[in-house]
Design a protein around this nucleic acid. Sequence first.
DNA 1: AGCACGCCGACT
DNA 2: GTCGGCGTGCTC
Length: 799
Amino acid sequence: MIAQIIVDVPSSQTDRVFDYLIPAEWEGVIEPGMRVVVPFGPRKIQGFVIGLSDTTNVEKPKPIFDLLDATPVLTTELLALGSWLSEQTLCFKVSAYQLMIPAALRTKVKKELKLADELHQLAPALQPLFQERDVMAWTEVIGQNKALAKELKRAIKAGHIEVHYQVEEKGRKKTERYLQLAANYEKLEPLPKRALKQAELLAFMERQTGPLSMARVMAEGQTTRQTVKALLDKGYLQESEQEVYRDPLAHVEYERTEPLPLTEKQAAVIRPILSSLDEERHETFLLHGVTGSGKTEIYLQAIDHALKQGKEAIVLVPEISLTPQMVQRFKGRFGSKVALLHSALSVGEKYDEWRKIQRREVQVVVGARSAMFAPFTNVGIIIIDEEHETSYKQEENPRYHARDVAIFRGHYYNCPVILGSATPSLESYARAQKQVYHLLPLTERVHSRAMPVVEIVDMREELRRGNRSMFSVRLLEALKDRLAKNEQCVLLLNRRGYSTFVMCRDCGYVATCEHCDISLTYHRSQHALKCHYCGHEERMPQTCASCGSEHIRFFGSGTQKVEEELAKVLPEARVIRMDIDTTRRKGSHERLLSAFGRGEADILLGTQMVAKGLDFPRITLVGVLAADAMLHIPDFRSAERTFQLLEQVSGRAGRHELEGEVVIQSYTPEHYSIEHVKAHDYEHFFQVEMGHRRQGLYPPYVFIVLINVSHPEITKVIDVTEKIVAFLKRELADETIVLGPVASPLARIKDRYRYQCMIKYRNEPELRQTLREIQQHFMRDINQGHLQVSIDMHPYLFA
DNA sequence: AGCACGCCGACT
DNA sequence: GTCGGCGTGCTC
C-alpha cells in the first residue's frame, strides 16, 4: 500500500506529492489526514498523508518511519480545502495544512548525535562531549567551534557517531494527578499510631466514591503533599494521570439565557435562513442590520435551529477577546456546547479547545479568523459577524480571507453562510445587489429605538474662534451634561495613520528608523523611540540629529495626552483609558470593560477597540476626537474604513432606554464618509463610494493583485520588479492593467528594499498559472539569494 | 528547507 | 597536493 504525502518542507520544489510505502503493520491504520514521519533524503521529517493508493510510479518507495496521530488531524473536507486554498492564494500545500492544525501540533525536527562506538575510539577532542552521556543535541555543538565540527564530521563518516532525527511535537496534553485507595489497602499493615495525619487522610479517602484530583484531596481533605506521599509510598493510595482541559473560562459563570421573542422585522430576516437550513441548500446571506438591530439574536436562533438538526455551527467574530459581551451571549445560550478560539489563548488552551471540536464534544465554535478551519464534519451554519472587518484577511502567507473559506465550506456542506454587518464591505454589498448574496436588511433598532443623533463639529471653525484645545465647545458641553446626569460617555481617538512622531521645529527633520524608511514612534513610558516594523529602539534625542537644535518635540496625540487634557478641563470626571498600553496584560480588557459597566467611570477613552461590540445601557454620548485621521492614508478603502468606524462607534450610544448622541470632530466635515454618518445613511455612502471606485478602477469593479518584491539591494529589487511587470504585460489580456514598478509605501523594512506592482483585472482565467510561473522563474534567486516575492490575490494592505 | 555533490582558489 | 568556499540539484 502506498501513502501519498505532502512533506513539511515549504519550498516550491517540494510542493508536490511524494509516495511512501505503508509498512504492513500500519496497513488499515494509516488514513488520509494523519501526520507521519518519513525519511526524506538523509534526514527525517514530518508529512501529511493526503491519499492512499495501490500503485506508484516510484521504483523503490521508502517506507513511512513513524505515525504521529491515532486519528486524522485533517478531515477529508479539510484536505480538499487545503488544496483549494493553496491554489487560490498561491501558497505551498503544506502551509495550507499547517494553518488548519493548532500550533501545539506543529512539529520541530531535532537533530541528535549518538555515540555508536566505544568512547575511546573517538578523537580525543570529542571525548569530553560524550563523557557523561551518549546522546546530545546537534545545536549544542554546532556553530561554536569549527575545529570540533570538523572532527565530528569525520567521526560521523567513520561511523563512530550516528546522526538521528527526532520529530517532536511542541505542545503537550495537560494531565492532572488523581488519587484513589489501592484495591488491597485493607490488607496492608496498619498505620503506626503516631501517623495521625495519614490516618485522617485515609479516612477521608474512604469516604470518596472514585478517584479525586490531587488539588481536591489537598483542599477538601485538608492535608499536604507529604502526607499524600507517605500513603502512596506505603501503598495505601494509588495515583493515576488523567487528561484535563485547560479551561480559559473555568472561573466565569454564565447566566443561562432563553431565546428572545423576535420582532417582526427580525422574524422576516431569519425566515430565509431557516429555510436554507431546512432545505440543506447553500446560500450566502448578507445581513445588513443597523447597530442595535438585534443581529446577534438572529445568529443565536439560527444556530439553535442548526443544532436541533444535529449539526454544527462556526461563528467568527473580530478578535473575540475584544468583545467579552459577545462571548457571554453565546456561552449563556449554548453553555458547554461552545468552544472558543482566539488569539488571547495560550498555545495549550487553543489545543484543548480544538480537541473538544475534533472529538465532537462541542457543536459551536466562536472564534477569530483561524476558527474557520474548525474540524467539524457536519457543519450546518457559518456566521461571520462584522464581515467588513479587515482582520478576517490574513496578511501573511497563506494570504486568505475567512469569507472565502466560509463560502467553500458552505458549498461543501450545503449550508447557509451569514455575513453580518451594520456597514458591509463594498465588495459584499455590491455582490448582494447583483444577487450573488441574498440581502437581508434590518433597518430598525429593536423596540424601534431611535438611532443616535449625530452632530459634526468643524474643527477649523473651532480654531478660528480661538479654541486651540482638542475638545470642541460642543463636545465639552455634552461631556459636562452627561457628568451632571450621571450618564456615561465613550471617547474615540482614532490613532490609525496618526502616530506620535518626533520632529524638529527648526528644520523639520523627522526621526526615522535606520533600517526601515519609516518614522519612529515616541513611547512615553520608556521615553524612547521605537520602529513599529522592525522593533529598532533608540533613546529620545535631546537635540536634532540634522541641525543640532534643541527644539525637537514629538507630535501627534496619544490617548495619554487626551487623558491629561481631560483631567485639566474636567477634573471631576472618572476616566478609564483603553489602548494597547492598558490592555496588554491578559484579561485586562475584560477588567476595564466590566469596571466601566459597573459604573466605576464616567468616560471610556480609547482607540479603535472601543468602537466595537460594547453594549452598556448608560452610554448616551459618543465623542470622536479626530474623525479624519484615517482619511489621508493612501489606500482606496480609507473612506470606507472611516465611514465604518464612525458608524460603528456611533452605535455604542443610546442602545437602551436612554437616547444617544454622537459628536464627531473633523477638519473635513464635508467629506462624504463623515457627512453620511449624520443620517446613518449607508445606502447613500455606498452610492457615492461606488462612483469613486468605478472612476479609479478599484474593487468591486476590478480584482486586484499586489506583488511585493524585496531584496537587500535596491538595484536587484527594481530589476526583478521590472521583469515581472514586463512579463505580466506580455502574458495578460489587453484590458488588464499592470501598474508599476513603484517603491512600496514602506520602501524599506529591516534593511530590505521593497518595490511593488499591481494588477487590475476583470477576467483572467489563467492568472494564477501566470503568477505561478513568476514564482518558478525567480525560484533560484528566492531559494539561495535574499529575494522575496510575495503575491497577494486580494490585498487589504498596500504597504 | 537541508544536504550532498562537485568544481575552483589558498593554505598546512 | 588538500581544505573549504558556495553554486546546482535532489529529496518518494
